[in-house]
Simulated assay, not measured.
Amino acid sequence: MVVTYMENVFIQIRRDLHQIPELGFQETRTQQYILNYIYSLPKERYEIQTWRTGVLVKVLGRNPIKTIGYRADIDGLPIEEETGYSFASSHQGMMHACGHDLHMSIALGVLTEIVNCPIDDDVVFIFQPAEEGPGGAQPMIESEEFKRWKPDLIFALHIAPEYPVGTIATKKGLLFANTSELFIDLKGKGGHAAYPHQTNDMVVAASYLVTQLQSIVSRNVNPLDAAVITVGKITGGTVQNIIAETARLEGTIRTLSAESMEKVKERIEAVVQGIQASFQCKASIDYGSMYYQVFNHEELTAEFMDFIREDTDVQVIECKEAMTGEDFGYMLRETPGFMFWLGVESEYGLHHAKLQPNEAAIPAAISLLTRYISFKGTR
């Protein structure tokens, strides 16, 4: 593969951004990097706004009748990097382990192309914070800044380590699940391990609760639907000879329909009420970040897939829906559009400390998306 100067620029941008991952709504260095780059482009061809740690850029069309939206998320994850990169994260305990460094560099590449070769319609590039948590999409679309430039259609990508470079995967309708975090705190009465009858043991209560939560999916969700309740962490107690006064369960809920999400939460609350009565304890539930399903607009998605098949050498795959979550679903609930997977062929998957996406996907995506936006926005 012959790498051109422009391709090198955006690969280097990815590497620069990879070194400064920041958690949700803390992306100050990332925001400044994005702004510094955008300010290097011809200023008469775009307008710019900031929202919290995010950035919105409107590239002015020659004769606009609609606004095309493209979203890239910008935050990192609390993961200690193990890639061995020479450009590894300089922020201890944080890493771009979900590919948002690629998402940003691709968006900046497409932005550059559209600024230098304007199309008829306006294009809004949305650099959104806090996708990994606590969730930036919903408050962003409710902001005055976003409403001022609300797009008429919107799309986004997510890297996919399991697909080779030069591959796009998507589908009409449901692509990603409804997701919710789950935190349950139990408080009883602790005491000496030799006198259990004088206590209300929260380790035992938590153990019963975990097993009962697993029955919700098997007995309360339609077998033709799909749902997952995973408890990934339990904490309780202090030492081996003290009965635990408190315990905490941390997990996630994922469903393929919004209705099932509500049903699952109703059953969780009923089960927790039962635990309170059985173990004479107090319980509280916090659902943390909740993401709405990513539901691709059928006509726009079909058009995008046809465009790839007919006008590019990129392979397009019609994939299955996944239980992953993405707060881009909130944007699609308000505006027609779609999301797709971009192949980056990495041995290690998303949220892994050794994720190493193939950087050849960056220029390939910039070329594809520039052509698609030009196709959608030029009459």
Rank of each mutant, 00 (worst) to 15 (best):
E162G: 02
M94Y: 11
L355D: 01
Q280A: 13
T83M: 11
R371T: 05
Q214A: 07
H197C: 05
E145A: 14
D185Y: 12
M1T: 14
L174Y: 08
V124S: 00
A206I: 00
E334D: 13
E131V: 03
M323P: 04
S367W: 10
A160S: 15
G236S: 10
E145V: 14
A205Y: 00
C98H: 03
I114T: 04
T170A: 09
E259L: 13
G188T: 09
R371L: 11
M94I: 13
V115T: 06
Y208V: 13
V165S: 05
I253M: 09
S90R: 15
F338T: 03
D121C: 11
A361N: 03
M6I: 15
E321N: 13
E142I: 07
P161R: 04
L35F: 06
V294I: 07
L108K: 10
N296P: 01
D311Q: 15
Y330G: 02
A88T: 06
D286W: 02
D327Y: 06
L369C: 06
G274I: 10
L41P: 00
G93R: 11
S207F: 06
L213A: 02
K282G: 13
K172Y: 01
V294Y: 01
N36R: 12
D122P: 10
K320E: 15
V314G: 00
A353Q: 14
N200Q: 12
E145D: 12
G325E: 03
G136R: 01
L41V: 01
S180T: 01
G93I: 08
T83A: 10
N200G: 00
T53S: 10
Q315P: 00
I253P: 02
V124N: 03
E80F: 06
Y37W: 12
Y85S: 12
E345H: 13
S218C: 09
V59C: 09
F183L: 12
R15W: 10
F338M: 01
Y46P: 04
P357W: 04
S278M: 15
Y85Q: 03
P223V: 10
V203A: 12
T312Q: 12
A365I: 03
T4N: 11
I285N: 10
E310W: 07
